[in-house]
Amino acid sequence: MRENTARRKDYDVVQSVELVLDEAAEAEVRRQWELLRAAGLHPPGAGHRPHITVAVATEIWPRLEKTLEREDFEPLEIRLGGLLVFGSRSPILVRAVVPSAPLLALQHRFFRVVQDCPGIPANIRPDAWTPHITLARRLRSGDLQAALDAVARDKDLRATVVGIRRWDGDRRQEWPVAQGREP
């Protein structure tokens, strides 16, 4: 059966493999989203869950699902670090995830599974990946200082990656690929 590899024009519609956080870390990121929302900015919507994207393509072929599910996964300690700004026309505010050898190895393993899928952006490749959690999107240049003021006082945070999920942007659905134990 031939895979559909047609290029999509809507680059916001993606297929991804994502790391999910423990309850305490997720609650802390949601608190930061609320601070940004209160400042009139654009954090991810109510249906979103804090995550770290490790692989993305315009299409992840269905035949790869079983391969993703067979990947070994153990909960992984990480540290959420300082703020970063991606882009300049429509900046995105993110909280850095401090790279560690185990985190980089995990990203590389999952990227390898989807590396031949269509529409993989250059910044997700293992030698160019910047692990992060999105805090606010579509910032206007005048909003950047307000966004920084809203969350810049927050300190680094220890967290645990407790699971891997798949996100299907076409259907707006998520499902677990691997689940570890909560710490």
Rank of each mutant, 00 (worst) to 15 (best):
M1V: 12
E3W: 10
E3N: 09
A6N: 11
R8A: 04
K9C: 09
V13F: 13
Q15F: 15
Q15D: 15
S16R: 08
L19W: 11
V20M: 08
E23I: 06
E23V: 04
A24H: 12
E26N: 07
E26I: 07
A27N: 04
A27K: 02
V29Q: 00
R30F: 11
R30G: 09
L35S: 05
L36R: 06
L36M: 10
G40L: 10
G40E: 10
L41N: 06
P43C: 10
G45S: 03
A46S: 12
R49K: 10
R49C: 10
H51W: 05
I52Q: 02
I52W: 09
A57G: 10
T58L: 02
I60A: 04
P62G: 07
K66W: 00
L68M: 13
L68W: 09
E74P: 07
P75R: 00
P75Q: 01
E77R: 12
V85C: 08
F86C: 03
G87C: 04
G87I: 04
S88I: 13
S90R: 06
L93A: 00
A96D: 02
V97N: 00
S100D: 01
P102F: 04
L103A: 00
L103K: 00
L104C: 03
R112N: 12
R112L: 15
Q115A: 01
C117R: 07
I120A: 07
W129P: 05
W129N: 07
L135C: 01
A136Q: 08
R137W: 08
R138A: 13
R138C: 04
R140A: 09
D143V: 02
L148A: 14
R153M: 10
L157V: 13
T160P: 08
T160L: 15
G163E: 08
G163F: 14
W167E: 04
G169K: 01
R172A: 12
R172G: 05
R172L: 13
Q173H: 08
W175S: 07
A178R: 14
A178E: 11
Q179H: 06
G180E: 06
R181S: 12
